[in-house]
Design a protein around this nucleic acid. Sequence first.
DNA 1: ACCGCCGGGTGCC
DNA 2: ACCGCCGGGTGCC
Length: 892
Amino acid sequence: MQKGLYKYILLIQRWFGGAGFSFADDPVTETLSQAIRGTGEELDREPDTGVLFGSLRGSVVGLRYYTGVVNKGEMVSLVRQPQNPYDRNAVMVANVYGSQVGHIKRELAVLLANIMDNNLARVEGVVPFGVTNQFTMSVVLSFWGREENRDAVVRQITSRSFKLQSGPTGTHTHTHTLTQLKNAFDNLFENLMDDKIGEREAVEAVCTPLLPHQKQALSWMCACENNAALPHFWEVKGELFYNTLTHSSVRERPRRVRGGILADDMGLGKTLTTIALILSNFHHGKPLCEPVSNLKQFACNTRLCMQNWVVCVCLGGAVLEDLDFAAALSGLTQGAPQKKSKSLVSPVEAASSQSTDDPAARATLIICPLSVLSNWLDQLDQHVRADVKLNVYLYYGSERNRDTHFLSSQHMVLTTYNVLSADYSVSGGASPLHTVRWLRVVLDEGHIIRNPNTQQSKAVLKLNTQRRWILTGTPIQNNLRDLWMLVAFLRLKPFDVREWWNRVIQRPVTQGDKTGLQNLQALVKCVTLRRTKTSRVCGRPLVSLPERSVRIEEVELTQKEREEYELARTEGRTTISRYVAEGTVLRNYADVLAILVRLRQFCCHPGLLGKTTTHTGVVAVTPAELRERLIMKLRLVLGTGSDEECAVCLDSVRLPVITHCAHVYCRPCIAEVIRSEQEQARCPLCRGQIKASELVEFPLEEEEEEESNLLENWRSSSKVEALMSSLLRLRSEDDSIRSLVVSQFTRFLTILEIPLREEGFKFVRLDGTMSQKRRAQVIQEFQSDAPGSPLIMLLSLKAGGVGINLSAASRVFLMDPAWNPAAEDQCVDRCHRLGQKRDVVITKFIVKGSVEENMVKIQRQKQDLVEKAFGTKNPSERKTSRVDEIRALMEL
DNA sequence: ACCGCCGGGTGCC
DNA sequence: ACCGCCGGGTGCC
């Protein structure tokens, strides 16, 4: 009897207390999934760098004590339970939803505990046969980790007389898949347009007529919020819902995503569409509020400054109680588009979506960067009918109203990521914004939260809301990891838990697995709408842009310039032809580059030639000299804006370092190569030996004294003259036309300042060295139509990255050809974009009979290649074509 | 028999 | 668990 009682107590402990769980009111499963989330974060941070050591068969025991169910082939997670009172080595097995299935058998648990606790490997489980009896089942465990830990793991396993089945040993075709991956990535968000999307008119409260693509977006967004349909990777199997990616099933209908990612290009009207959504889709497709003509014009006049806005809106909230809100709730509002499309929503779906509605949730929270806060206010003012009473509260500034009832009773609350996360950290998670039950949270410029470790991201994840939206023009910036946070915010089950994202998506994709990529594409597609300015709706362009035309202006050098140029050219040809004959072009890449840069500089202006172009080919003696030379080369490669790409990541070089063989890479990229290959590490470009200790960084000091020298001994050049005469002609014809003057050489921009000043042009300058804040100022100044604002912007080719808007300019002068034609296109796109009213004319200055002409030829070839084959070339092919390029440039 | 064998009770960590 | 293990009952052929 006593024994029986004791067992009963034990059972209770096992259920609730035994694994360190508490009697807190959370359901056990929730606690478990939190436990899962909490573990393995260190290794999960780099899930894509692991290799498979092998796998072994083990067993899961104690099934009958737990409710977690699994299917044949289902993935399970393994969670250490160091606090387990029966065995400190305990390893719990849980299914995809975090429900416990059982434990790993004791003897095996000792091994796993050792491996897991020492971070030697990540252990992943799959149940090959599912549940075959009520007591135990098989599990296949696979071990993933860093190559350097392989031995230790194998030793651990064999010493405990388990047998490690070697996994597929395919030493991954890493570099090859990288190129493919990059292409797949670039296309990940393309072609997401679904022709089946209907159009939906905005409610009357929106006074701006929507463009067709905006009506589509509105229709899509409403459907995302109201349709109960599950993503296609769920299948209904009898009573159960089956996930075809993880092979898991649940009895309860998975909580679907009510929202998504609106990833339209900048300028397509994401803000307007979102405003229309907020007004149109309150509870279950009903509108939020409609024009109320008998109410006196309410203070929606936002042509006041922000401060006034706050005041007037606060007033509104207090004075007028929420008539429209009540009307909307009781369905009395007229003018709403009464659902003709009712048949689209099945009764079951309708019921299930209604049951999840929280009637207390009514406000939409908009979170955006401070810089676009005023844009929201402007757009509300512009697009919402003045007689519509909309309670909008700007939750910003030290006097902000933190009362949660007040906030809950708004229609919209606007705030910034900074305010949100500051509140969050101060209040320890119980901030006013975290207490309100929101109807909808919208993250504007949502890519801001792509790093899950930031306070902002954590704060955003903790918001309590029914519906979730991410607005962004750049859904992926450079890493697949960036996407996880978006998925997590949307709560796209089960991938909001890092392990399943890593196992099903991230690792397969980064290791070049085809189905992984398909799964990713499918996943993205089911929550994303993206159109670019070149997308088409029903065969017609989304928006029509003014024409753009390119003309090449040939520049003749003066006799003196020609002589200097030819001298340098002959010298360079001798050196390079020697390298070509020796087959050492790549080994001497920096020298070759220096020669080419020098020639290109001659084409622009002799003043561009710094002291850095001397003594090529001289063997350095002392380490200090070598270092000095390497830094000079690095400066050449980078400072001239030749837009080098890193041969490891194939992206523009970030955090540049130069190897002793004078090749430039991103520091993290090359460090990874050295780390994984250890002593055998070789330069990916020339296969020369490389060491971590020999990587040279760019020193931060910059020489300024030369600048003055440049100005004192001023002389012009043919290209400068060509530009100046174009600009002067333009000004005399139409002094309202603004121009971008673009060069890869920032020094050239400095040189150009002199004649511009002399001729009395007002200009601004934007280059890569400027702070983010200063850039924004300059752009604003240039874009402003105030009298006396600058006519010209001097722009360095690489400055600003994508996304900046220079639509005030309609003329572009490309002073020197770029290696990469895409860089030029991108630059031109900064003014040839939405908002451009005039036709855009692009002038490329090319010096006749020079290296520049050859560069243009190569550019054309590259363009052809891209158009033909989408350019899936691996680095070795790239190398050969690079040599060919150099030979073509030097006419060798 | 300080064994073997039988068969019931029992069962994660 | 249609197992293994434990421990009590039992005991020539």
